[in-house]
Design a binder for these strands. Structure first.
Lengths: 189, 189
DNA sequence: ATTATCTATAGATCTATAGATAATGC
DNA sequence: ATTATCTATAGATCTATAGATAATGC
């Protein structure tokens, strides 16, 4: 059934959005193509009309979700200061919503075990966030922060969020988030 | 074939060691019981003589590898200072050897998606490391550091190591590790 | 006699492909 | 006529179980 060109594009979009969410929520390995396609309102047979393989889908889903997060971070830093952005990142809401949250916190450990091309996609699409963090740190410190410095700062946020997510006691988990905010503020000096 | 009691114990031990290493290297979902049993020199049928389920094995493997790492950290902090321990943690060697490395960096994100009982095991067996980090930070700062403060400090190490592991360019990856060391030293002030 | 191990297999899943069907453009 | 979708299935894996085999203790 030959549809309008927008139809194909819109379907591909739905698949990508489902994948970007499900991968962050459950992990890459834990989510099958059938689940992704069902969430996009399709059956699994159609998958290969839109993507070459699960790994190809993963790369596009990483690109997509990292770009979304980059844009949100840039906007947050334009609107407010670094401290406000840190508080939003280390919030109970972000902890409890991995499906729409930070791709790096959700998937960095798993992506590290994937082929180099996938890690390339991951690293190059995380870079804009590192750029704006480096800029923000440089301004605040009055001294140039490198991309690696920005990565360490982001590492603090990522690691702290993961520990908060893994901690079963809610109060302890929230205390970890708060300690993370204090640590980030200290590190930004 | 009824063996000596030590035989059963030794076999169980080999399975646990294989699991603790393979889970950290490849992730929990990515490693099948057949692979773990083969690495322990057995076939998959024997697995259920020793463990109730894969989840039960995971809990024991987490306990095992976290306890190993706790002991190593305590010893490192008895022998040297916090800065030396941080340099060892954020070293290229640790980055390149996840199978024997930090359980938290390797598995926290995945464990966060497992049942509460598994997260309990994870959290309670990570606690001794938090205790010694809190003690070390308290001494260095001349001011009491809470467990949550220790978690944020550990979060910096965990997140930075993960970013270094996910970064395909070796030089960039190593620069991230070095920036992580500087950040940890600053945070320990 | 006991029991750790093996082979074999059940039943569910996974990624990927084949071929039929049907909705639209020309 | 084209092609996005469907159903069906291949072939590989996964966790878990059943029943036979064999190595040791009593």
């Amino acid at each position: 059934m030959r549809y309008a060109p927008e139809h194909n594009e819109a379907t591909r979009e739905r698949i990508l959005e489902a994948a970007a969410r499900l991968f962050r929520e459950h992990g890459i390995e834990a989510v099958g193509l059938a689940k992704i396609m069902a969430d996009a309102g399709l059956t699994v047979g159609t998958f290969y009309t839109h993507f070459k393989s699960k790994e190809a889908l993963l790369r596009e889903a990483l690109l997509r979700s990292l770009q979304d997060r980059n844009a949100a971070l840039e906007q947050a830093l334009r609107a407010g200061d670094l401290e406000t952005a840190v508080r939003a990142y280390l919030s109970p809401e972000h902890r409890d919503e991995p499906g729409t949250g930070c791709t790096i916190a959700a998937l960095a450990a798993e992506v590290a075990r994937h082929p180099r091309a996938t890690r390339q996609t991951f690293a190059s699409n995380a870079k804009p966030s590192l750029d704006v963090i480096a800029e923000s740190l440089s301004k605040r410190r009055g001294k140039k922060a490198s991309l690696a410095d920005a990565a360490a700062f982001l590492g603090l946020l990522v690691g702290t969020l993961q520990l908060a997510r893994a901690t079963p006691d809610r109060a302890e988990s929230t205390a970890i988030l708060e300690a993370g905010v204090r640590a980030a503020i200290q590190l930004a000096e």
